[in-house]
Amino acid sequence: MIQEVISATKLIDFEGVSKTYQLGNQRIPALKGIDLTIESGDFIAIAGPSGSGKSTLLNLLALIDTPTSGDIRYNNIDVSTLSDDERTRYRNKEIGIVFQNYNLIPVLDALENVAFALQVQGVPTKECLKRAEKILREVGLGTHLHHRPANLSGGQKQRVAIARALVTNPSVVIADEPTAALDSKTGMEILELMKELNYTKNTTFIFSTHDNRIIDSVHHVVYIEDGFLMNRY
């Protein structure tokens, strides 16, 4: 196992994190004793072949899954001790998630999709819409505020998804192959957008990818294979 210390200021700290899935009588180890520390403001790609455990690692980083063993700390808070509701609230405030297939809510327009992340916090609707509009303008969708997902292109949908992830001012945005469903040009635009937001807002971005062009443009790459954290550069 490799102790992966990317920076001195800890945002996320994984200690001996393992994840095993039970498939019938079979136990399938997806992650094996991962030790990983991530600093705030970083821009990290998680790379590795299919089935290596990238998505599992991202799920654990996003707090939408729980490890079989090991400790996960966010800002020195042991998140494994939090209840489901506490973890959800924490995730809502501190973590933005971008999905490969955008996962926008089809009955809500772009503005409402972004505002949704704030509304579940109980922020007043007016305030939610104001903040959502601001962030949508920042990602270049000021003219598409009231378009529903069905009327947006793939790139535009991903921009909405990024806006939704950022609207709560999270410490970290976790994206699972955010450019995989996009053509290369649009994919690069989305990457540029994330880099810009990382730079301007100092938001940490962690995303998985297979795309070498993306890997070349990040601060750090975490390479994972067969559930082991193999390397970083």
Partner: peptide, 10 residues
């Protein structure tokens, strides 16, 4: 997705 974004079970 809604749960991941921050919607509570309730």
């Amino acid at each position: 997705t809604m749960r991941a974004i921050g919607m509570l079970r309730g």
